[in-house]
C-alpha cells in the first residue's frame, strides 16, 4: 500500500502526462494508433497504385531530364514499382515520374516535389472522365506548363 492510499499494481505505469493507465489499456491504445497509421498508409499506397491502372507493354520511351541524385533515385524507385514491377501506365502524358523530373529540373527540388505530388493526386482512375484535359494519343495531355490547345485557323482562309 502506498502512502497515498492507492494500491501498487504492477500492471499500472506512470505516463508523462501524469495519468495512470493499466498496461493492457496502454498497449491497446498503441495498437489502435498503429492500426490507424497502417490504414492511412494503405490509403496512400492504394492511391499511388490507382495512379497506374492500365496494363501496357514495356518499355516506355519518354525522354528523361536530369534531376538531382536523391530525387532521381526516388523517381527511379517509383517508376520501378509502378511501371516495371506492376507493368502499369500513367493516365497522363508526360507520365507522373517524367512530370516530376521536368518540374524538379525546372523549379528545383522543393517546388518540383510539390508539383509532382499535385500531379500524383490528380492521376486517378477517373481522370479520363474529366473534360478539361486534351487527349494525347491514348493518354491525357498534362504538361508542366498548361497549353492553350489552340489550333490556328489561318490556313482555313487561304484560298489555295
Amino acid at each position: 500500500m502506498r502512502p497515498g492510499g492507492l494500491p501498487i499494481n504492477p500492471e499500472q505505469t506512470l505516463r508523462t502526462k501524469g495519468e495512470l493507465r493499466p498496461a493492457s489499456l496502454e498497449s491497446r491504445i498503441s495498437g489502435q494508433r498503429f492500426f490507424g497509421g497502417l490504414v492511412l498508409a494503405a490509403v496512400i499506397l492504394f492511391l499511388s497504385l490507382s495512379c497506374a491502372w492500365e496494363p501496357v507493354s514495356l518499355p516506355a520511351t519518354d525522354p528523361v531530364p536530369a534531376v538531382p541524385g536523391a530525387a532521381d533515385a526516388l523517381l527511379f524507385e517509383y517508376r520501378l514499382l509502378a511501371r516495371d514491377l506492376l507493368a502499369r501506365r500513367c493516365n497522363f502524358y508526360p507520365s507522373c515520374s517524367i512530370y516530376g523530373q521536368l518540374a524538379i529540373s525546372e523549379y528545383g527540388p522543393v517546388v518540383g516535389v510539390i508539383m509532382a505530388l499535385e500531379r500524383w493526386t490528380r492521376c486517378h482512375a477517373s481522370a479520363r472522365e474529366q473534360d478539361y484535359y486534351e487527349p494525347a494519343g491514348s493518354r491525357l495531355s498534362d504538361p508542366v506548363h498548361i497549353m492553350e490547345g489552340l489550333e490556328p485557323w489561318d490556313c482555313l482562309l487561304l484560298p489555295f
Binding site: L117, D131, E151
Partner: peptide, 27 residues
Amino acid sequence: FSFYGANVYGGARAAEYYNVARRREVY
C-alpha cells in the same frame, strides 16, 4: 507540408485549367 503545398498549387492550377477550357470553347 508537401501535400499541403501540392493542394494549394492544385487549386491554382485548377483555376488555370478552368480558364483555358473556357477560352478553348471560343476558339
